[in-house]
């Protein structure tokens, strides 16, 4: 069976333009020729049948479509565009903040590694305090870690409070 008719698109277009009247009467000479063709062409008949069916369906659906108001679509688009603009504007700041945190953490780790002998000396000094008793190096390390954490958390809290303001 033939899969395609060269006139199919022409027939559909002619129907949409009203050249083929719904009652089967041609509206023009060109329409008459096309109508004759359709009468003899099963492919165009099928295409025409679907076009008419879809048009009725489209009209009925359009009438029932739960469409949002144009104003609402416009307003939402505006809002979204503005949010995206803000996000874009903030992106370098967010990136810089993250970079600052990573750099700070790496610097602290590097400093600790570089000054490790001195840190061990301090730990030994703290561990030798009579209050901690003998073999208290792990306890001293824990104390220093706690102190550093407290200082870091205090700094972060202050930063967050400051940035909120």
């Amino acid at each position: 069976m033939k899969m395609h008719c060269e006139k199919e698109e022409e027939v559909i277009r002619a129907r949409a333009e009203g050249l083929l009247a719904d009652n089967g009467e041609p509206a023009s000479e060109g329409g008459a020729a096309l109508r004759e063709h359709v009468a003899a062409c099963p492919i165009c008949q099928e295409a025409l049948f679907l076009a008419e069916l879809f048009e009725r369906d489209q009209r009925a659906l359009g009438a029932q479509a739960p469409l949002p108001e144009a104003d609402l679509v416009w307003w939402k688009a505006q809002l979204r565009a503005r949010r995206e603009a803000v996000r874009r504007a903030e992106a370098p700041v967010v990136f810089a903040e993250k970079a600052a945190w990573v750099t700070g953490a790496l610097s602290a780790a590097g400093l600790a590694a570089w000054q490790w002998p001195a840190i061990r000396g301090w730990l030994a000094l703290i561990a030798s305090a009579p209050i901690l008793g003998p073999h208290s190096e792990p306890l001293a390390a824990l104390f220093v870690a706690g102190l550093v954490s407290t200082l870091v958390l205090a700094g972060v809290s202050l930063y967050l409070i400051w940035s909120e303001k």
Binding site: D57, Q58, L61, G62, D71, V73, W74, A81
Partner: peptide
């Protein structure tokens, strides 16, 4: 500058296209 058209043009375009597009 950010959008393709102003509000009035959008309303007209929407009125013309929204129903068939939704279908």
């Amino acid at each position: 500058r950010v959008f393709a058209m102003d509000e009035a043009s959008f309303r007209a375009f929407y009125a013309q296209t929204a129903r068939p597009l939704w279908a």
